[in-house]
Design a protein around this nucleic acid. Sequence first.
DNA 1: TTTTGACCATTTTGCTCATTTAGTCATTTT
DNA 2: AAAATGACTAAATGAGCAAAATGGTCAAAA
Lengths: 190, 190
Amino acid sequence: MAIDRKQNIIDAATKSFSLFGYKATTIEQVAKLANVGKGTIYTFFKSKEDLLDEIISSVIVEIKETAEHAMDPDRPFLENAHRALYRIAEFRKQHPLTIKLLQEIRDIGTPAVQEVMKRLDRAIIAFIREKIDNAIKKGEIRNCDSEITAFLMLKMYIALNFDWEKEHEPLPKEKIAELFELYFLKGLSK
Amino acid sequence: MAIDRKQNIIDAATKSFSLFGYKATTIEQVAKLANVGKGTIYTFFKSKEDLLDEIISSVIVEIKETAEHAMDPDRPFLENAHRALYRIAEFRKQHPLTIKLLQEIRDIGTPAVQEVMKRLDRAIIAFIREKIDNAIKKGEIRNCDSEITAFLMLKMYIALNFDWEKEHEPLPKEKIAELFELYFLKGLSK
DNA sequence: TTTTGACCATTTTGCTCATTTAGTCATTTT
DNA sequence: AAAATGACTAAATGAGCAAAATGGTCAAAA
């Protein structure tokens, strides 16, 4: 056992961050869980924050893959955008690490966690933006500021998936798809 | 002097809340500022929270009036919606009380303040919703869920006016109007 | 060369106690 | 009689501090 020490550490840290949050997990705890000495962690990561950073980098890759998988090149852009964003929202809602870290931001606002989640958002926006740029190039949608559009799309999904539920019944997937189509595709004009 | 004691108290409290925040203003401070005894405050308001509540109620009225004023019955609905929402966003950005209270929510998360600002949001959404319902009735826009649409419109304005600025240059008024038109009126379809 | 845990400087925590605060009410003022 | 008041109380807050915990280092061990 204990072959890939770095992966062991990452796994242990991910588990602990998901369970107790970033602030409440200690490096010693991670070392114990990973069956390595505390010093070993610092041969792979330059700080606790750096450890979290690397973990989030994998999450970003994972999210991008999930979103990419949900898309189908034969379907229209807006449908793919919805599928991707919906999967991204699902991921956030279901992944123990993102759940815990977002909760930690709300409850204690740990700066390192805020920073890292901002980076996650930026990565998602960059991903969506790329898709928008492609769709514009292909003439699938009208020309628009892809950065702002990606930003607004993500905001809309977060609003519908997380904020709406604070005061109302959760919206079913179909309703969200319908709303996305209405506002980003058709508009309210008759 | 000291004619309308209740108004004095409200004025003093508004000033103090705007300057120091809700948590950091004491009832005694308000009493001093208003030139009344502490007990007098409790003949008009049943608690500190109730005092804040009444102040926010006036703010709600004020915001509604400002928004109403910005609208012109001869212009199309979407233009009016933009004008109203833009004014509402401006108000939030410029009114010392809302600035301070929103900052207090970010910094220390005072529960009473969170509650009261939620109420403000609900009032704005209700206001917009009414306008949407009217526009639907008059056939100005296509039928839609007015509650969700109002919710999304406000979210979009907050996103463009407050969240966008955290990572980018502020968007000029015209750009925001253009984006609003694009997404809520026309959509991205060609 | 890689791994390790004792070690160090700094933070965080748990605790006490004095101060402050929201709210009450008997007394004073009008 | 009605309205206003501020001394008072119970509860909350926060300053101050000792003890414990924590992130990170590094000389020794493997």
